[in-house]
Amino acid sequence: MVVYSGKAKDVIEVDEDSVKIVFRDSISAFDGIKKEEITDKGKINCLISTKLFEILNDYGFETHFIKKLTDTELMCKRVEILPVEVVCRNYSAGSLCKRYGLNKGIEFDVPLIEFFVKDDELHDPLITSDVAIVLGMIEKKEAILLEAITRAVNETLRKIFESISLILVDFKLEFGKTSNGRIVIADEISADTMRLWEKESGEIKDKDRYRQNLGDVIIHYKDIQERLEQIKSLPPLHLKSSVRVIIKLKESVLDPAGEVTLRSLKRKEFKNIEDVRVGKSSFLLFSETPSFALQEKIEKISRDILSNPLIENHSYEIYFGSDKLQV
């Protein structure tokens, strides 16, 4: 049974927990205005996705990928796709240049993260995480996790492509929720969902060839796939996650430290101060990539050890890398 049929893929139910994703030869751009069939395009993107998902799984990311069935079919976990997709940009290109009138190819010191609504009729508009949260598309906790995971994927794929002389300009990730609520990286990660430039010449290797009528789409896709196949061993990346945990006394619990502080502040010139609650924060560094599994671990640590739920509430934020701990 076909669960979903997209512009370039079909999703077929296998059982309650898994689906088969079939890559077709169709290619389209500009929300389907421009479209055609390119022989072997489905196969090449399927092989690129397989390789990249295998790499991500190896580095400890949680993805929907289970295994490759045939050259055009993947066995994946069945997920509910989140309504927002995440784009990460290392260089300016595409819609970003159009939106802000930027030149192409400006390198960003800190990669940019953007959320977009998955909706062809609305032409996949940009959305701030605040709006996505208010509209109920994602939870705040999820927005933070999606950003952290995407940054970690960026770091990983950037290094991988660098090793085969390609520049990862930008890419898009889709996320899904499994039946037991785990957030995993889903959809495909292929030449259709990223921009890749030749390191030396800057030559375009991705779907922009099709968008901009540069021709030889399949030749360049195939070249990416062949170069990826040459990667035999993965470099150690030492991916890290940092976490800030905030512990606050519950409203119903008397906070003697807060009250004493309030009194002394009031004695000074700070007249309109009404309340002071003294909390605690902890900074944790993990030698693993941000993931739903890490979030579960942090939840347990925060609830069972860092706080006493009888009198304290906890909240946390997960970041990719160790920088946030140096604040």
Partner: peptide, 16 residues
């Protein structure tokens, strides 16, 4: 109390 073998919790004296 922290092991939950006894209920409740002991927290800062009101006098600090």
């Amino acid at each position: 109390c922290e092991t939950k073998i006894l209920p409740g919790v002991l927290t800062t004296n009101t006098s600090t």
